[in-house]
Computed example of a mutant assay.
Amino acid sequence: MLELHAGPLQPVSSYNASYRSQVTFNDRERYFMLFHARFNNSYNERQVCLIGYLKDRLRSGRCFFKSKYIARDLGLSSKEVGTNMAILAETCPDFTIEKYSYSNSTTWLVTPLQV
């Protein structure tokens, strides 16, 4: 039988990236609650976390991101990042997300939509 233990969330991986030290799991929960209310259950927790990460990084316009570095910073696998970025490319109204290239990891071109 599966037992669930309540307690604080632990990091998924042991990477010690600068972004991870700035973003706590409480921030992830905050992103999730904020977007959960806004998009009415259309995104899962990983997608909400990715949206928050991209918004934090896109202060100056378009940017390039590698899946492996996003994965390292957020404690996800590269495959999880790639799968969820592809979903966000189709569904997220805040960004234009394009699969740009592949060299050791998928590179994504992310551009914020101008209002």
Rank of each mutant, 00 (worst) to 15 (best):
G75W: 09
Y43W: 10
P112D: 07
F65P: 01
M85W: 04
K66R: 15
P11Y: 09
A86I: 01
R59V: 12
Q22H: 06
K68H: 09
N26F: 08
I51G: 03
I51N: 03
R30E: 12
G82A: 05
E3V: 05
R46T: 11
C92Q: 09
H5P: 04
T111I: 10
N41I: 06
L113R: 12
H36T: 11
S42I: 08
I70P: 02
N104R: 13
I97M: 04
G61M: 04
V81T: 00
D56Y: 05
S13C: 09
V48K: 15
I97L: 04
I51P: 01
L113H: 09
L76R: 04
G75K: 04
D73W: 01
N104D: 10
I97A: 04
T96L: 13
E90W: 01
G7I: 14
G82I: 00
S103P: 01
S78W: 02
S78C: 05
R72K: 14
F64E: 09
L58T: 05
H5R: 14
R57E: 11
N26P: 00
N16R: 15
D94W: 12
L2P: 06
V115E: 15
R62T: 10
S103F: 02
K99F: 07
D56C: 00
I87K: 11
S42E: 11
V110D: 09
A89P: 02
L34R: 14
C92V: 08
C63M: 13
R46Q: 14
C92D: 14
V81G: 02
V48R: 13
G52C: 10
Y100D: 13
A89G: 08
V23E: 08
A37L: 08
R72G: 00
V110T: 10
T96G: 05
Y69P: 01
Y102R: 12
N40R: 09
